[in-house]
Design a protein around this nucleic acid. Structure first.
Lengths: 337, 337
DNA sequence: TAAAAATTCGGAAACGATTGCACAGGAAAA
DNA sequence: TTTTCCTGTGCAATCGTTTCCGAATTTTTA
């Protein structure tokens, strides 16, 4: 590894390692002249303090971990990006972990983090319902955890979410007002707080507009894209097909689009579509897709900001319950005209 | 941080820390009975060895760093994903850094890495032309570096690329054979090896098919999406507009699509389009986009695999020049019919 | 001018894990 | 019985940094 250490600098300059260390950290008890000598040599030799020695000694690492269920998903990808920008601006590093929607994998990651790799953790859970024992371990080890989107239901803490129910309500209302008689709701998991809220908004819209709602219209899909698409194709093929779709996840919106193309059903003439999604090119789809976009980047930066504030300021208790809501943006386009 | 240490386990069991350490590492010089006792207690208390103490002592961290110019870009995102999957399977962690297409930022990241944060680095450069002094620092500190896509031109090493020239050649030939009279090439930087190769393939196709090529058709675009789109809109508005577009980057393909929609020019009737891209939904665009997809995931996993092999096997010299080519996939769709 | 205080620096002990070496105790060989 | 060897364990050094505690020198104060 690095051969240039503080010890090396010290003997080059005939100083003690403690002096060099203090000089590099701009301590007040070191004279300006020695400070200058030290920093100059350090710069010349491109000295970089060993992160592990530092972390070991100070018991903090200046890094934050973020665990998401699906890194490739543009939503989570943008959250990571937002968090990273704030971390970077504050001298923190960010390590991103992917739980692949799997609680066991998530546990492994969390247990690995127990080894003091990070000072704090930002999480979106693989499953909110499951016991949160692995998360409590983090708390016990004094590693703060805050949540976004899929937040813990059995653990208190800072929780960043978006106005899922309201957004879903608005999207559904939009479809109904455009004249849809039978709108189906495509959800991934109604046990998640996000799924439950979106589902609730969907139902709420029907109630407020006095529209009947067939329970069969609340569809729970799986994580397998191919299967989802086939199920939808079959449904669209029937004469009893719906004339509106509210997709509560990007992958479901895309599956619906593909199924509609396959069955040659016209959007929006025969079926109108609105989808939750963070894709950048909804306007380029065929036809342009009406979207409900979660404030991904902002959510990531808000999480990181609040977390770093909490790490700096001992008065902030990151383990107390606090909910922060950042609104989503509904953009109607051709697909629901 | 973590209060549960080896020392703590040792005194609980009336053993020396060395014994505990050896037991946990499954050393042959520890009896099965003590091993069992130790591992059981460790599991019960959920002991995790301190990563920083371990890293400091062993002078290796079991983590790999990856630096990309634009993490949000699906190509790089997928590369990271591919690399991560291999790392995870081999007990390595992966830390992803974003240089934001900025050499200075890249240098900062690299210098930060000098502090022994990682055992090795996978990189795609912000600028291949610039001096590679910061990369040589890594080599001097015995931190192997390998490259993908945008590889170093002034430094030897393992370099993973795709068949850029051939792919570009095929895409261009396809456009010309479909009857295009005037195809424009949209590139980001002809000084990069990737840009140069794609440009070369474009020219090669014209030569082999005996088509004249106006130098003005080789267009160098910038990184600003809005500006690019405006330039293209102006061009498409003229009567001398091209009837074919080969976009050498996803963002350029999208800019072209947006410009074509804005100017109400029909694809593929008036202008045919082929774009390098890794987006997942090219088939859903309006019209479905003909793509040249780089093998992003495979490239990431190949990098990680080779790197880890090199770290394990001292006989492999990761600093010697070696080029590995993973072919791209051309998928013609409606946009170039 | 002597004492007190401030400034500037060095020595050494941490942080938590690994590892070379020493050393018991028992088994095997002589 | 004595010697040799092996097995299982403990001691202590080490990785590179920070930081507590003094100590030496200079400056200020009485």
């Amino acid at each position: 590894m690095s051969e240039i250490t503080i010890k090396y600098l010290a003997q080059k300059l005939n100083l003690a390692t403690s002096t060099v260390s203090r000089a590099l950290n701009d301590s007040h008890e070191i004279s300006e002249t020695t400070k200058r000598k030290v920093t100059e040599l350090a710069k010349a030799l491109n000295f970089q303090p060993n992160a592990y020695a530092k972390g070991l000694r100070q018991q903090k690492t200046k890094t934050i971990g973020i665990i998401v269920p699906d890194r490739v998903n543009p939503f989570f990808n943008l959250v990571i990006e937002g968090a990273e920008s704030i971390c970077r601006a504050n001298g923190y590093s960010l390590i991103a972990y992917n739980s692949y929607e799997d609680v066991e994998q998530e546990k492994k990651i969390v247990y690995g983090l127990l080894g003091g790799k990070v000072d704090a953790v930002i999480m979106s859970l693989a499953d909110e319902e499951k016991e949160a024992q692995h998360l409590e371990w983090l708390r016990e080890r004094n590693i703060p955890v805050i949540f976004f989107d899929r937040v813990a239901q059995h653990l208190e803490g800072f929780k960043f979410t978006t106005n899922d129910q309201e957004s879903s309500y608005l999207g559904t209302k939009h479809l109904l007002e455009k004249g849809c008689k039978k709108v189906i709701y495509l959800g991934l998991s109604h046990t998640s707080s996000v799924g439950a809220a979106r589902r609730e908004g969907f139902i709420q819209a029907h109630q407020e507009l006095g529209k009947a709602l067939d329970p069969a219209c609340l569809m729970e899909m799986g994580h397998n894209d191919k299967e989802n698409q086939e199920i939808l194709e079959k449904m669209f093929f029937k004469l009893t097909r719906p004339d509106g779709v509210l997709a509560a996840a990007e992958k479901l919106g895309l599956a619906a689009y593909r199924a509609l193309i396959k069955t040659r059903i016209k959007v929006p003439d025969q079926v109108r579509v609105v989808s939750f999604t963070n894709m950048q090119m909804a306007d380029l789809l065929n036809p342009p897709l009406s979207t409900i976009a979660q404030p991904a980047f902002d959510m990531g930066s808000a999480c990181a900001l609040e977390l770093i504030k909490g790490l700096k300021d001992k008065k902030v208790d990151l383990s107390e319950e606090k909910r922060i809501i950042i609104p989503s943006v509904f953009t109607p386009r051709e697909s629901s005209r």
